[in-house]
Design a protein around this nucleic acid. Sequence first.
DNA 1: TTGCTGACGGAGG
DNA 2: ACCTCCGCCAGCA
Length: 111
Amino acid sequence: MMKKEHSFFENAKAVAKLIPKGRVCTYGAIAKYLGASKSARMVGWAMNSSLPEENIPAHRVVNRNGLLTGKNHFGGKNNMKELLEDEGLIIVNNQIQQLDDVRWDPSVELL
DNA sequence: TTGCTGACGGAGG
DNA sequence: ACCTCCGCCAGCA
């Protein structure tokens, strides 16, 4: 029978959609929530694959350092930073400040 | 087809 | 504390 489970990419996208406004999530957190903590890279890859298509707030997904590692993929502009700042986040040097205060972990929030 | 790269993160030295 | 390597797996030359 066909695999009912959405692919890892689909799951990653679904979780990204659940990130509340004004919050951020890490690739590792999503990967871990999906049971593949070692595949954090694939989460980012999934985001990239979903960027132009769906309404996924990929700008709310950053690496564990709070660094906007994916800003380069947002059309090559500072869109990612502006989007996050527009949501009330503070970003300096492409890094989210007070990350712990805005962090949103699916394994914790969705628990 | 094989091999390298890449929006990461943890472990080891 | 800092640097390096490994694993994960899809996409591309």
